[in-house]
């Protein structure tokens, strides 16, 4: 009886496989061909992305006036970063709330370009406001002010957060 019933049930599956269940079927070859075309369009779009980025840099942020601010973490364990706000010469230019994925990326050595813009040569002021949570869930709020000089080439500033009670926010330029 087992053989009969089991055979009946299995035969249903086999019969169904042999019948065309739809007017259309998708073959392995079609899937592969489509995948190859997707790869080709990805390559073309990637190249367009590179050209667009270079054009944007040249057009909007020429090297003579470009300033870029990056955020990084230096093995920070005592607190969890929530947000950062950047002021350039007293004007707020960037603020960011961090997701868990972004924080993980920073903790693994990533650097976030939080702001790119243009400034003139000479002395400038940068103010960084950071909020977060220390271990034990107490809130952390720190502000640091820095001076920097913009010369001929592009200026790159790295706001590096460190495990320190006095100066959590440091600047590398």
């Amino acid at each position: 009886m087992f053989i009969l019933l089991r055979g009946f049930i299995l035969s249903i599956a086999i019969v169904m496989l042999s019948f065309p269940v739809s007017a259309e079927e998708v073959s392995k070859g079609q899937i592969k061909s489509l995948d190859e075309q997707v790869q080709e369009i990805k390559a073309e779009t990637l190249n367009l992305g590179v050209q667009m980025r270079l054009l944007e840099e040249k057009l909007l942020y020429p090297s003579s006036t470009q300033v870029a601010v990056y955020v990084s973490l230096d093995n920070v364990e005592k607190f969890r970063l929530d947000s950062i706000e950047i002021q350039l010469d007293g004007k707020m230019v960037a603020q960011h709330l961090y997701t868990l994925r972004e924080l993980e990326a920073l903790q693994k050595g990533g650097m976030q370009r939080i702001y790119v813009g243009n400034i003139s040569s000479g002395e400038h002021g940068l103010q960084v406001l950071m909020t977060g949570r220390a271990k034990g869930s107490s809130g952390v709020r720190r502000t640091e002010k820095f001076k920097f000089r913009k010369d001929e080439g592009p200026k790159i500033l790295e706001v590096r957060l460190v495990d320190s009670d006095d100066h959590m926010i440091t600047l590398r330029d």
């Binding site: 590179v50 980025r53 592009p154 330029d173």
Partner: peptide, 29 residues
């Protein structure tokens, strides 16, 4: 140089989030 490091860190930032398109664009740029 600073430019090298910041570009490198920028790529890492996207790669570690699984944003492969952006990571490749940054690298190629």
């Amino acid at each position: 140089g600073r430019q090298y490091l910041s570009d490198y860190g920028d790529i890492l930032y996207y790669a570690h989030q699984g944003e492969w398109f952006d990571a490749i664009v940054l690298f190629d740029a």
